[in-house]
């Protein structure tokens, strides 16, 4: 790392403090030991459903696939007591299809990744144009990626300036800032990037772990670094920013463990989809499966929940 970058990071860490990696990993390992049963488990599962950003981000997405995703988002299960999810998350070109499928006053929001997702490697003008297009097509939320290259080079001002530019382009839409933690190398860097984003975000905006397009995605430890940054920032400024782990959260058990981390770090105020989301595609099916198990007492097969699993 060049010395200018070293200096920039050192000054930032002097302000925000660094992360005790060993203590952090020990702490998050304990979250898995909480015993959630019966009513508490059912509450947690239902709450997790309301926090899901049901996502499809594939080259083969079609308007029809997005429409069926929206139908699932509104009514995840035959069981009427299962709530709708928080949002559907799609590429900008699919926003208008999602908006049409959900209707104008839907309980489910339309989130769109923009700013040359997932790499972010496009001219700023192009990225802002993409945001504007998604907003014009009816998106409620915009997921942007930060400029990791500039961040790792210690050029924090351009990183923040870009976030501000996108925030302005968003207008009234909520903004989610993807840090892409797997490319930030260390917990300290994740904390630093979190603070850079937090300082320019508005109440109701989010920071988000990953694009889901790289090898390593949301882990309990990365989530913990970020929610601790949110907590410290909230105590300092009174601005409550939301959190969205994304990628790699596939089982209901994992989701409950993440909720435990949120409750024990940020408190009950963050156990709502206005402040906490899961970016996931297969998580919802497992949540529904476990809800059905809690209600019926019988373990359920995955193919009852629109899971492609051959005859098995």
């Amino acid at each position: 790392m060049p010395s200018a970058a070293q200096g920039a990071f050192r000054r930032l860490f002097d302000e925000i403090g660094s992360v005790d990696a060993v203590g952090l990993e020990e702490r998050v390992a304990k979250y898995g030991t909480r015993s959630l049963k019966k009513a508490a488990k059912l509450w947690g599962l239902n709450r997790a459903v309301t926090m899901v950003d049901l996502t499809t981000l594939e080259g083969k997405d079609t308007p029809g696939k997005v429409a069926s995703l929206c139908a699932k988002a509104l009514h995840p299960h035959d069981e009427a007591s299962v709530p709708p999810v928080a949002a559907v998350c799609v590429y900008p070109s699919m926003v208008r299809h999602a908006r049409r499928a959900l209707g104008e006053r839907a309980p489910v929001k339309v989130a769109s990744v923009a700013t040359a997702f997932p790499s972010g490697q496009a001219p700023l003008k192009t990225r802002l144009g993409e945001v504007q297009a998604a907003v014009d097509d009816g998106a409620d939320e915009i997921d942007m990626v930060i400029n990791r290259g500039a961040f790792l080079a210690g050029e924090f001002a351009p990183v923040q300036d870009e976030i501000v530019a996108v925030r302005e382009a968003c207008g009234r839409c909520a903004l989610k800032v993807i840090l892409e933690v797997s490319e930030l190398e260390t917990y300290d860097n994740i904390r630093a990037a979190s603070f850079l984003a937090l300082r320019v975000l508005r109440t109701g905006d989010f920071i988000k772990t990953s694009t889901g397009k790289t090898g390593l995605n949301a882990t309990l430890a990365n989530n913990q670094v970020m929610i601790e940054a949110i907590r410290d920032f909230y105590l300092e400024t009174g601005r409550a920013i939301g959190m969205k782990p994304a990628g790699g959260i596939r089982s209901a058990k994992q989701a409950l463990t993440f909720l435990v981390a949120v409750k024990e770090t940020l408190g009950d105020a963050w156990l709502t989809n206005a402040r906490y989301r899961f970016g996931a595609s297969s998580l919802l099916n497992d949540l529904l499966r476990q809800i059905a198990k809690e209600k019926s007492g019988a373990y359920q097969p995955p193919y009852y929940f629109s899971e492609a699993a051959e005859s098995y």
Binding site: Y299, P301, P302, A309, E310, S311, Y312
Partner: peptide, 16 residues
């Protein structure tokens, strides 16, 4: 038993 069923489900399609 539940975990064993998950393991069996994973192995099943390939075996069949």
């Amino acid at each position: 038993l539940r975990n064993a069923v998950e393991a069996a489900a994973k192995a099943g399609p390939g075996w069949a």
